[in-house]
Amino acid sequence: MPQVELAWGAATAVGQREDNQDRFLAAPPVFAVADGMGGHVGGAAAAEAVVEALRSLAGQGTTTVAAIRLALQRADGEIRAFQGPEKSGAGTTVAGVALVDEGEGPQWAVFHVGDSRVYRWHEGRLELCTKDHSVVQELIDAGYISDESAATHPQRHIITRALGVGPRPEADVVLFPVVPEDRYMACSDGLTGELGDGRIAALLCAGDAPDAVVSRLVAEADASRARDNATAVLVRSA
């Protein structure tokens, strides 16, 4: 199986929150962002549990979709087993991309639970690879509200799927071919809540090194007085 050369970067900022409950992983073949919720201690612990479960897949050239799902299921169980009032109701979203081999050579597996997102820069344009698991997205799909009004909708922060809380979630997974110079960015909603797709596209298309791109994206979100933690991980195939 041919090796895929990768370059990547990651950055995070607290924003206007008291602490950072986002966690990220940039450890080939897995790149992911988890956005914890449910209190300062519990949210951070939930996000950390997901990142550590996915970290178990690192160190190999590729992983599998089944292994990704198993890691997320294990993290979901660990979060639900948290003890103590400080961790009560803890949960987390997750979004990421991983190199997988499903018998046809390496592919990118984009996975997510909740409203953290994965974008792809492909053939000169930005594509959103994930669909938010949120009340607002359901309203958009049903035709009740427009994409434009979603950003200010009073229920925009209510998610319908998360690890650790509610019904046992199933991650959405989509496979993409490995294309040289494609860029994939996983990010928390603290970033997309401050920067529109146009600004994200403008920075991704510049061709700068991934660490420089994500550092600027997160810095711009933070400079906009981001209301939430803002985190991004970017990976590029050579």
Rank of each mutant, 00 (worst) to 15 (best):
S56N: 02
A150M: 05
W121G: 15
Y144V: 15
A151H: 15
A109F: 04
L72K: 00
V218Y: 08
A171F: 03
I200T: 02
D172G: 05
D22H: 06
V233W: 06
A221E: 04
V136T: 11
W121H: 14
I68K: 00
A186N: 05
V113L: 13
P154N: 09
I200Q: 13
F24I: 06
G59N: 04
D189P: 02
E181H: 14
S56R: 10
T93I: 11
G38N: 00
T63D: 07
N20L: 13
T130H: 11
A151M: 09
D182M: 12
A45W: 00
S149C: 08
R17G: 12
P106L: 07
D228N: 01
G15H: 02
L175H: 09
L126M: 12
R216Q: 15
R55L: 12
A206C: 13
D189W: 04
A26C: 11
Q137C: 08
L70P: 03
S88W: 07
H133W: 01
G42M: 07
A171Q: 01
L175D: 09
D19Y: 12
S146W: 11
R225W: 09
I159E: 00
H112L: 11
P210M: 04
V51I: 15
P2G: 12
A67I: 01
E123T: 14
A66L: 12
T130M: 13
S149Y: 09
G103H: 08
A201N: 07
V94P: 08
D35P: 03
D101L: 06
V100L: 05
P167F: 01
C187K: 00
Q60M: 06
P85F: 06
R199H: 09
A142S: 15
V51Q: 02
Q83P: 04
L25D: 01
A49D: 07
I158R: 14
H133M: 11
P28N: 05
V179P: 08
V173G: 00
S116L: 08
E127Y: 13
R69V: 08
G198I: 03
R183E: 15
G103V: 03
A98M: 04
E181P: 04
R225I: 05
N229Y: 10
H133E: 03
V174L: 11
H112E: 04
R199K: 15
E170W: 03
H40C: 05
A162E: 00
A223Y: 00
G114V: 02
G196R: 13
S134Q: 09
D115H: 03
G15I: 06
R23I: 11
V233S: 12
A67P: 06
D19W: 14
P29H: 00
A219R: 14
G38Q: 11
A221T: 01
G207W: 00
D222P: 10
R74C: 10
A150S: 15
A67V: 00
D147R: 15
C205Y: 04
D76T: 03
L70H: 09
V136N: 06
A171D: 01
R80W: 07
G42V: 07
